[in-house]
Amino acid sequence: MTSPATGPVAAAIAARLTADLAPSHLDVINDSAHHAGHMGDDGSGESHFTVIVESLAFVGLSRVQRQRLINTALSDLLQTSIHALAIKARAPGE
């Protein structure tokens, strides 16, 4: 089961993606409960996420280019707070 993310890491993810990509749709889902006790679980309850992002910034970009934009926006969080990030990135109308 996934849950909407509401903690400080989730809020930071949402704020950064909103600022950098001006998404028309954004879901930040906390998947950490699925990974409790596994490698990468830091006990914070905020280590594993799925983001679903729709943005005009993705028009004409490949899947890899879209993921790179997201990874760039979250680069320091990926080094310090996020152990795993699943990305679903689409342009409007896809």
Rank of each mutant, 00 (worst) to 15 (best):
P4A: 13
A5Q: 09
A5W: 03
G7M: 02
P8Y: 05
V9W: 01
A12T: 11
A15C: 11
A15Y: 08
R16L: 14
L17M: 05
A19R: 11
D20R: 11
A22K: 12
P23Q: 06
H25Y: 14
H25A: 13
D27F: 10
V28F: 03
V28H: 01
V28D: 00
N30Y: 04
S32T: 08
A33T: 09
H34R: 12
H34G: 11
A36T: 13
G37V: 05
M39S: 14
M39W: 11
D41C: 11
D42E: 08
D42G: 10
G43S: 01
H48F: 10
H48L: 08
H48R: 02
V51W: 06
V51D: 05
V51N: 02
V53N: 07
V53G: 04
V53W: 04
E54Q: 15
A57M: 13
F58M: 07
F58Q: 00
V59F: 06
G60Y: 05
L61F: 05
R63M: 05
R63E: 02
V64H: 01
V64T: 08
Q65S: 11
Q65H: 08
R66H: 01
Q67H: 13
I70R: 00
I70S: 00
I70P: 01
L74T: 05
L77F: 06
L78Y: 02
T80L: 09
T80Q: 13
T80V: 10
S81I: 00
H83N: 07
A84F: 06
A86F: 07
A86Q: 07
K88P: 03
A89D: 02
A89R: 02
A89M: 04
A91Q: 12
P92G: 04
G93I: 07
G93Q: 07
E94K: 09
E94T: 14
